[in-house]
Each structure stands twice: as C-alpha cells, then as structure tokens.
C-alpha cells in the first residue's frame, strides 16, 4: 500500500493504513498491510471508503475473518463513511508482495 505525499487524500490514507495495520492475518500473525493483501483504498466518494484487497488463497478459511476485520477497522476509523471491501484475485497474491517489515516479522530471509 503506497501513499504519495501529493495525494489529495494522503491524510486519510495514512489514517486508513494505521487502522489496517491492526488487522492481523491469524494464520501468519502479520498485519494485512505488511502482507501486501491491501491493493488500494479509495476516498474519492465522500460517503464511502472503498478497499480493494486480496487473500493469500481463494477459499482461505480465514477469509471471512480477515475481510470482516478490515471492514471493522475502517468503520471505526471513518465513522462518517460507509466501508466497502472488494476482494479481487487479480493480480494473484504471492510472497513477493510481503513488505520487508512483514518478511522480518515472518522470520524470512
């Protein structure tokens, strides 16, 4: 999840990222941002916060918990907006999407 300083919604994106970092993948014990599961957060609709994200695998048994966690976290952070979560399978998630911080938390090389 990349945030550009000149983005008109940079402040909201930082707030969203902070909230999403509280959502942990219960299988890997790493937050969804550092796992690279969050592809984007959109604030262009003033009444909504729309998240585009993926899961490590379709049919992931933790999928409902993870997407529910994302919705809960963003609803708490942006109580004046409705949260929408869209799960996509393209691009397919892979291990290279994990951030360096996520890799460190996983004890990867």
């Amino acid at each position: 999840m990349e945030i550009k300083l000149n983005d008109p919604f940079a402040a909201e994106l930082v707030k969203a990222q902070t909230a999403l970092m509280q959502v942990i993948d219960p299988e890997l014990y790493v937050n969804v941002v550092d796992l690279g599961l969050v592809y984007g957060v959109d604030f262009t609709d003033a009444t909504k916060v729309k998240v585009t994200m993926t899961l490590s695998t379709p049919g992931c048994p933790m999928g409902e918990a993870i997407t529910g966690g994302v919705k809960n976290a963003l609803t708490a952070a942006f109580s004046d907006r409705e949260t929408e979560v869209e799960v996509v399978w393209e691009p397919r998630w892979n291990y290279h999407m994990i951030t360096d911080e996520g890799k460190a938390q996983l004890g990867l090389e």
């Binding site: 509280q22 959502v23 219960p26 014990y29 409902e64 918990a65 993870i66 809960n72 963003l74």
Partner: peptide, 22 residues
C-alpha cells in the same frame, strides 16, 4: 485451532484485540 478461532473471533477482528489461534 483455526476453526475454533473463526467461530469465536471472526466478527471481532479489527474491533478489539483478540488472541491468536496459536
């Protein structure tokens, strides 16, 4: 542990800090 965890905590993630499956 994952099926037990899911049944207890799936609706609570992101709202409160819940224990991990392990």
């Amino acid at each position: 542990p994952f099926i037990v965890w899911t049944s207890h905590y799936r609706h609570l993630t992101g709202k409160v800090i819940v224990p991990l499956p392990k």
